[in-house]
Structures are given as structure tokens and as C-alpha cells.
């Protein structure tokens, strides 16, 4: 695959996009919570791979490399500034698409699940970006503390603290809402 990518074969890039786009999109959207921006970021990640594939040494996996580019692009200061302006109008409305698990659930439980998710995502959006990034990398990609620490250039202890902080904030917010 990498050889074909290094030869610049378009078909290889198409396979690469199909294989990894939803994973990268999940990370990008998890951090930015902005659909258009996430699309742009994921596109840029693939374009970066296209441009620099000859420099790819292969000592880390392709996904590790792309994940790192995705996070770096999400945390790019220019994008962060733009995002701050847009955040006043952020909409976390999710459509009514059902995941395969929920297709068999009753309409009531599906509605409740959707509401819960909507609420929790609204609270995730309110988490500080540093904490949200760590939380998303752990929940979506199930990365180890060490891997997250290495990627973000922080200590594993900081990763642990941020994850705890995220959970505590989300649990507190949900509890306040319920009461």
C-alpha cells in the first residue's frame, strides 16, 4: 500500500481515504465539534500524506502518523482562533440516523438515547480544548496514556488528570441537569 502511495497512484489514495476517513473525521470532529472544519482538516491530512509520503519512514504506523497530523491541524492556532468566533453559533444537532445497534431499540429508548447524547456532546463542547483533546483521543481512539502523552508532548500523569477532570465535569453537568 505504502509503495503504491509513494508511486503516486491515485487509486491507492482512494483506498486510503475510504479506509481511514471516518476514524480521522471522528477525531477531528471530537476536537473541533465543527463539521465543515473537520472535513477540511481530514482533507488536509490526506493531502499532507500525499505530499510527504516519500518521507514516511514507516517506523510508526500510517494511522499513527495521520492521527498526529490530524491533532496538530485541529490544534493549529489559526484554526483555533477562527473556531472561537464560530463557536457562538455552534450547533450540535445530530440527525436522526440510527446506528445499527439502535435500529432494533424502541422509539422511546432511541429518543432518550439521542437526547442523552445531545446533552453530553453539548457538555463536551464546553470542556477546555486541552482537556477535550485528551478525552477524545482516549475515548475515540482508545490510545494509552503514554501514547497520548507522547503525541501532545505532555506527561502521562497530566493525561490521567485531564481525563479525570473531563469525566468529573461531564458527570457533574449531567447530575445538575437531572436534578
Amino acid at each position: 500500500m505504502i509503495k503504491r502511495l509513494q508511486q503516486g497512484q491515485e487509486a491507492a489514495f482512494q483506498i486510503l481515504v475510504k479506509q481511514y476517513q471516518s476514524r480521522l473525521m471522528a477525531i477531528a470532529w471530537g476536537i473541533t465539534l465543527d463539521h465543515e472544519e473537520s472535513l477540511e482538516i481530514v482533507q488536509d491530512v490526506f493531502f499532507n500524506v500525499y505530499r510527504n509520503i516519500n518521507e514516511f519512514r514507516g517506523d510508526a504506523g500510517l494511522m499513527t502518523w495521520m492521527r498526529k497530523i490530524t491533532v496538530n491541524l485541529c490544534l493549529n492556532w489559526k484554526r483555533r482562533w477562527k473556531r472561537r468566533f464560530k463557536w457562538h453559533h455552534v450547533s450540535l444537532d445530530s440527525g436522526d440516523t440510527l446506528s445499527s445497534k439502535e435500529e432494533n431499540a424502541s422509539p422511546e429508548s432511541h429518543y432518550l438515547n439521542l437526547e442523552m447524547e445531545k446533552n453530553i456532546m453539548a457538555h463536551v463542547a464546553r470542556l477546555p480544548e486541552k482537556i477535550r483533546t485528551v478525552f477524545i483521543l482516549k475515548t475515540v481512539e482508545d490510545m494509552s496514556y503514554e501514547a497520548i502523552a507522547q503525541m501532545l508532548n505532555i506527561k502521562p500523569g497530566t493525561v490521567s488528570s485531564r481525563l479525570y477532570h473531563a469525566r468529573k465535569s461531564l458527570a457533574g453537568a449531567l447530575k445538575r441537569e437531572a436534578s
Partner: peptide
């Protein structure tokens, strides 16, 4: 909490138009 967040993000990713990124990327390339 973890499950809800994963589901929320997954649901959003599933809504994505599969060909959009591929199409735009090929134009760029």
C-alpha cells in the same frame, strides 16, 4: 459517559458523505 461520547461522535461520523473528501482530495491532487 465514555459510551455516550463514542456513540455521539460515531453518529456524526456516519452522517458524513463518504465521497466528499475523496472527490475534493482528487481535485486537489
Amino acid at each position: 459517559i465514555t459510551n455516550q461520547v463514542v456513540n455521539g461522535i460515531q453518529r456524526h461520523s456516519n452522517r458524513m458523505n463518504d465521497t466528499e473528501i475523496e472527490k475534493n482530495l482528487l481535485i486537489k491532487i
